[in-house]
Design a protein around this nucleic acid. Sequence first.
DNA 1: TCGTATACGATACGATCGTATACAGGCGCA
DNA 2: TGCGCCTGTATACGATCGTATCGTATACGA
Lengths: 198, 198
Amino acid sequence: MDNVTPLTGRQRLILAGRRLFAEKGYSGTGVREIAAEAGVSIGLIRAHFGSKAGLREEIDRQVIAQIEELCSRATRHLGTEALELLVEDAVEWVERERDALLYLRTALMERTPGSQALLRELLRIMRRFVEINRDRGFLQEDVDEEWASIYLVIDFLGPAVLEPFSEKEFGTSMYHRDMVKRRSAFMNRVMTRGFMKS
Amino acid sequence: MDNVTPLTGRQRLILAGRRLFAEKGYSGTGVREIAAEAGVSIGLIRAHFGSKAGLREEIDRQVIAQIEELCSRATRHLGTEALELLVEDAVEWVERERDALLYLRTALMERTPGSQALLRELLRIMRRFVEINRDRGFLQEDVDEEWASIYLVIDFLGPAVLEPFSEKEFGTSMYHRDMVKRRSAFMNRVMTRGFMKS
DNA sequence: TCGTATACGATACGATCGTATACAGGCGCA
DNA sequence: TGCGCCTGTATACGATCGTATCGTATACGA
């Protein structure tokens, strides 16, 4: 589980904080717990981040940076087969950065400058996505583009919101391979044809 | 704002707790704060609910009951023009019971017996909805019905998740009349035709 | 070898947390 | 009239919270 190169106390604190905040929320997690999970002493939080809130801000910054990276990669696909590649990218990112996504989920439940920024970043990605597809003629006519973007944000976050209940309710993780496949098949269908008769 | 019939301390505590838990989360809200918002003394929480957790359980029970009521009303439409009426019902319910919905939103972020039950109830409504529409021939062919239900849950919760950021990001509440109208127009289109070309 | 920054433990602080206890008024009922 | 119950207030208690401040060990460049 552990990496070969030993992480610094600072890095361990960030990872531990991200995981615990994601699981139990900001106010549900104590600094002693974070320090214990990171295997460092409490004092180090203050030394590096000034306070518990400072630690959260740093976590927010890093997660936002990850989202931005996902966004820039989306833009790179511009000239080619945008849609499928972007979805694949997102799926792959979610698998690789599950902790970040679950943190994102929990952060959005608390109203902080960081969570507002996180949401804004997500919206930027999705607006961009809609834009690209419109320019390439993949969008149907007379679509409410703003709501399409919001819709994409919601459906990106949806599985993360349900994930904590998924095992009990569906017998598997939302991010299990089969579940992801079923979901992307369904979403693909909905986005191109819908699933109800008019 | 206040009702004419004075509420009992018990009722005031439930309403105050629901509002504060919704806004700041369970562990982010103190019992003194709840008592102050309700205009009663702290001891009353213990007298009526045994503990802070007991108060939450009672709130969960009531919100679940509200969801169940929404569900039973959905079933009542069975024989007639199910789809539009159910959507109208849900919209009307959300307008009337905004606090309950926002509590639902926050509760789903915490893993408690109550939140699991809340999600299960939502799923039941949506499965039922899909079932009804399938039987009445409103469903397209070869639809993954389980994922359709999950999809409906996500899109029901979506606006609630974004609501706290809505004013700042879109300049209006997610549940403002115009926003609801735009959204239901978009969702209607997506569910019947999608918005992307294949 | 010295100076300095970083990493870390130990402990203490004031505040706030959820909970517990003591008690008061109002009501129905024997 | 007296008793029990319910609703309610006020206050106290122990635990835990985030923060602060010691002291020390280690690493590295001048």
